[in-house]
């Protein structure tokens, strides 16, 4: 892949300034319906610079998808100012589409009944890509994403991993400066996830494509994102390094112990038993896992041990709880 010429002037590729979105919803049974205003996103500001990979995280219902829809121009913000590659997404959606690739992991842009190749050919006319450029990029992407074996297969017969690679290709054939991914690895197996992550890293490193992604997958975040933005209840909760997020809201590792026989809660230094069910016990680790494991296996008869790394969801959930507590304190 040849490198993209660096964006001039270092203007942010995404510039969100206090954006918000409210919905009016009708609720209740057929009669006696009430209208209620729901705030999905409230006063969110952030900037993304060309060449970054940014993870946009938050629990279900936090406002991630609403933000994605505003960034791509499907929804217009009800408050604030939003610019993506210098354009106002909802007003200039068609022009923006030429500069941006979008993949919604749970949806597809490919034609269900036709060979993958046909959908990819259609994108050439859709984005008015010169035939030679299209052919060259298709060849590159075919090689990198190993599309060769199933280019002639109808999309409905593709596995989820293959379909996702097809969708990524469709989003990238017009060589967009910005790639927006909404849960790109959802439902994929380990190998497919890894293929897609390595591809995205390479795309970012070699072509300088800016990537913004939402995900619930720890692996995606750890492998891809230097920077994360966390949104909770529609508001920005964190924006910074992944490492700083971890340090700011440390989450202990958990040791799951299967004992040979039921016992009282395990007591060893450097760990706290948080849950007991039959012969299985959960220990939160404060200290060195190796020492705790040695201690536990020395004092108890053990059938099995599993060490669970904290996942980003835990870290984020702790952050929310802290935010919630802080809000209550300041309100009190």
């Amino acid at each position: 892949m040849t490198a993209r010429t660096p964006a001039s002037g270092g203007a942010p590729i995404i510039d969100a300034d206090g954006i918000g979105r409210t919905f009016t919803r009708s609720e209740g049974p057929l009669f006696r319906r009430r209208r209620r205003t729901v705030t999905a996103v409230r006063d969110v500001s952030f900037q993304v610079t060309a060449g970054e990979i940014v993870g946009y995280l938050g629990p279900n219902g936090a406002g991630k998808s609403t933000t994605m829809k505003m960034l791509t121009g499907i929804l217009s913000p009800s408050a604030g100012r939003l610019r993506v590659t210098g354009l106002e997404p909802s007003r200039q959606r068609t022009r923006l589409a030429a500069r941006m690739g979008v993949v919604f992991g749970q949806r597809t842009t490919l034609w269900w009944d036709l060979p993958l190749r046909d959908s990819l050919a259609l994108t050439r006319h859709m984005y008015r890509v010169p035939a030679r450029d299209h052919a060259r990029r298709l060849a590159e992407l075919t090689e990198l994403l190993e599309l060769g074996p199933f280019l002639a297969t109808p999309v409905r017969q593709l596995s989820l991993g293959q379909r996702m690679r097809g969708d990524l290709t469709a989003a990238l054939l017009h060589d967009p400066a910005l790639l927006v991914l909404d849960e790109p690895t959802i439902g994929l197996d380990v190998v497919s996830k890894s293929t897609i992550r390595e591809f995205l890293l390479r795309l970012n490193a070699e072509r300088g494509t800016t990537i913004l992604l939402t995900t619930h997958d720890l692996g995606d975040v750890e492998r891809l994102c230097r920077r994360v933005i966390v949104i909770d209840h529609g508001s920005l909760a964190f924006d910074g390094d992944l490492a700083a997020l971890r340090d700011g809201a440390p989450s202990p590792r958990t040791l799951v112990v299967d004992l040979a026989a039921p016992s009282e809660p395990i007591e060893v230094p450097g760990a706290r038993t948080v849950r007991v069910r039959g012969t299985r016990q959960w220990l939160e680790l404060d200290g060195n896992p190796a020492a705790v494991i040695a201690d536990v296996s020395h004092h108890y008869a053990i059938a099995d041990l599993t060490l669970n790394e904290p996942d980003i969801e835990d870290v984020v959930a702790r952050l929310y709880r802290r935010e919630g507590a802080a809000r209550e304190l300041s309100a009190g």
């Binding site: 499907i74 959606r93 068609t94 022009r95 589409a97 030429a98 919604f104 949806r107 842009t109 859709m126």
Partner: peptide
């Protein structure tokens, strides 16, 4: 189903 989101992203 909301799939229309994908259609609206096309420059057509």
């Amino acid at each position: 189903t909301g799939e229309v989101a994908v259609d609206l992203l096309r420059p057509v």
